[in-house]
Design a protein around this nucleic acid. Structure first.
Length: 616
RNA sequence: GCGCCUGUAGCUCAGUUGGAUAGAGCAACGGACUUCUAAUCCGUGGGUCGCGGGUUCGAUUCCUGCCAGGCGCGCCA
């Protein structure tokens, strides 16, 4: 069940590209000719047009032309199923249609194709000339656009709301997964051209906050030696006792003498603020920050809840029954109607959520993404109903449900339960394995899939640990460039680049390394002739596509998979091939290659919010 | 009972929006450091894609019915 973004992400024929400079974090639009795939698509479309024009093909509504990268390298660099899609309407065999297309392609062949073949049931496979791949690689590398993606968002506003844990206790690992997914997805969306806004919704009002206040209040009384009965529906965690102690330190013992109803609101606010501050720090420590911490209480204070309900009522989508106000969500895809205002006048959380959703759209977001724990999935239909109630297109709102995390230490599973208070805090995990490993691990699986998080593995410094594997690849490239510098191979304006300068470039301007490599802008990449080297170049050039795909499908895990693949290809290459060798020509183009890999690893890790160590 | 998610190698999981002979890592076994980092690499074996139907040129992918596991089904939050 993937989100349909086609309506929202128009692919223009010559999309402008974006580069995000990781040092400043600001994106700038850079024009260039697009990817190899784009160029091939153009050729193919032209061939189809020509065949239709001269009557070789007669289909009235030709399907969109799609190119994909075949799994099997024997099938070339790209393949299309166009002939098979046309075959039905043409009343010809797919292979015959393929031949017709190829004939027209031949006339338009602009010298980028090495070989075409019709294969299998009617695929057309294309192999792009090696020197064209190399030119492409060199051009993009020197222009600094290896990591540039298409501008899919075109500056439109999108909001990603995530974590949004209630301020009634510290964040646990499950929240951590949501935090990583939301943060990285936001990074990716920004990279592909959306104007991204990160938001955390705080449920800072209602019965639960009152219960929270009472919990601290009772612990406070206990600290004063009063015997109280601590009810089971109050928050049991030790942190409540600590906060009670803090209140006593700051405000003394006098609060015990005032009536409960008078002081509980104070306890509630203090406790919620305190916990929220802890959450904020934990997230900051985890590399996650928000553009806005949105308070539910502020919605109520501004009267937005009433306004939203009024609007719903005016649309005839609400009714009163048994003294309560009901929303006709069942008319809008929910399985039943839901109460917004309870008998007695209290609003439900649903009412606030309706108002919050309305507020988001009123702030001008064209797309809204909510990231929730999978245990809230039952809530999706009623919020979707609200989207429709306010006449917004259903595709403009998307909930990403993140499945549970199971923590383990090797074989041993660490059982968790919120009820008994035995959940493991995110902060503990981060302290134990570090931010890098935690973030990476949370993104190694699809959101849909439950995640096994092995603390032992996350700490391991070996190839088994995907984080280290990818980071190590980066460190190794740095080491190669360091060696090149020591041998005096890196030059700028006739001068040898100093070791410290190289270190600086590795740290801050990896892009500029291309400018100091042997051969400079005229470097001849014809020496990259091993299948492995050509494969690496293609893999590098596939990066923008990968990032765009991640953004379109809202699947950030693709990035971790891809980086592991790139790292794997590089490690294999490294072990077989000497980069800095006695052969100046080979040395030059191999240095160019690994510098390209460096850009990709750097950019990908930056998107993940994972560090790229220069030595390990 | 109803709804959502999941089911792919012994284990943990990918699988390019429906493509061609389904991949990777771990685990097992055997190899590679006088070299730019062995935190790495190379080789070997391993499959009824939960099961049955359907849609079509073509299904791990879409639809449907079962089976198994997880989660959720309040005028709770």
């Amino acid at each position: 069940m993937r989100p349909s973004w086609s309506k929202w992400s128009p692919i223009t024929t010559s999309p402008s590209r974006i580069t995000a400079s990781s040092s400043t974090g600001c994106a700038q639009i850079v024009r260039n000719e697009g990817t190899m795939k784009d160029r091939l698509l153009e050729l193919l479309r032209a061939a189809l047009q020509e065949a239709l024009r001269n009557g070789s093909l007669r289909t009235l509504n030709p399907p969109p032309v799609i190119l994909e990268r075949p799994r099997d390298p024997a099938h070339g660099d790209f393949s299309t199923n166009l002939a098979m899609l046309l075959a039905g309407a043409e009343k010809k065999s797919p292979r015959a249609v393929a031949e017709i297309l190829l004939r027209h392609l031949g006339e338009k062949n602009s010298g980028i194709i090495e070989r075409t073949q019709v294969a299998g049931p009617g695929f057309i496979n294309f192999t792009v000339r090696r020197d064209v791949w190399m030119q492409e690689f060199r051009r993009k590398a020197l222009a600094g656009t290896l990591c540039a993606t298409a501008n899919l968002g075109q500056g439109r506003k999108i909001q990603v709301e995530f974590v949004s844990a209630n301020p009634t206790g510290p964040l646990h690992v499950g929240h951590g997964r949501g935090a990583a997914v939301g943060d990285v997805l936001a990074n990716i969306l920004k990279k592909v051209g959306w104007d991204v806004f990160r938001e955390y919704y705080i449920n800072d009002t209602g019965k639960q906050i009152e219960t929270l206040g009472r919990s601290t209040y009772l612990r406070y009384l206990e600290l004063l030696g009063r015997s109280v009965e601590f009810p089971p529906d109050c928050y049991q965690g030790d942190y409540i006792v600590e906060i009670a102690r803090e209140i006593r330190n700051r405000h003394g013992d006098g609060l015990a003498d005032k009536p409960e109803s008078e002081v509980v609101p104070f306890f509630a606010k203090f406790t919620a603020d305190w916990i929220l501050e802890g959450i904020r720090k934990d997230l900051e420590n985890f590399g996650v920050s928000f553009d806005c911490w949105f308070s539910e209480a502020s919605l109520h204070a501004r009267g937005e809840v009433e306004q939203a309900l009024e609007e719903i009522r005016k649309k005839g989508l609400a009714y009163e029954q048994d003294g309560a106000l009901w929303v006709k969500s069942s008319d809008l895809g929910d399985e039943k109607d839901r109460v917004a205002v309870r008998q007695g006048g209290e609003t439900t959380y649903y009412a606030a959520d309706i108002a919050y959703l309305r507020d988001k759209y009123r702030r001008g977001f064209e797309r809204i993404i909510d990231i929730w724990g999978a245990d809230h999935h039952g809530y999706v239909p009623r919020v979707n109903a609200a989207v429709q109630a306010f006449d917004h297109p259903p595709e403009s709102f998307h909930v990403l449900l993140v499945q549970l995390v199971t923590l383990r230490r090797g074989r041993e599973v660490i059982s968790m339960s919120t009820r008994s208070g035995t959940f493991v805090e995110l902060a503990e995990v981060v302290r134990e394995v570090g931010t890098d490993a935690a973030r990476f691990f949370f993104l190694t699986r699809r959101c849909d899939s439950p995640l096994d998080f092995d603390l032992e593995l996350a700490k391991q410094k070996s190839a088994d640990n995907p984080v280290f594997y990818v980071q190590y690849a980066h460190a190794r490239v740095c080491s190669i460039l360091r060696t090149a510098a020591e041998r005096g191979l890196l030059r700028q304006g006739g001068e040898t680049v100093s070791a410290s300068r190289v270190e600086e470039m590795l740290a801050q301007q990896p892009q500029e390394l291309f400018g100091v490599l042997p051969g400079g802008a005229e470097v001849d990449l014809a020496g990259l002739e091993e299948a492995e080297e050509v494969g690496l170049v293609k893999e590098i050039l596939a990066y923008p596509d990968l990032v765009e795909g991640s953004g379109e499908t809202l699947e950030p895990h693709r990035l971790t998979c891809y980086l592991q693949e790139v790292a794997g290809l590089f490690h294999g290459y490294y072990n077989r091939t000497r980069v800095v060798s006695e052969d100046p020509g080979k040395t030059a183009c191999r240095l160019f290659l690994v510098t390209g890999i460096l850009q990709i690893l750097r950019d990908g890790l930056a998107l993940l919010g994972v560090s790229a160590p220069r030595s390990m």
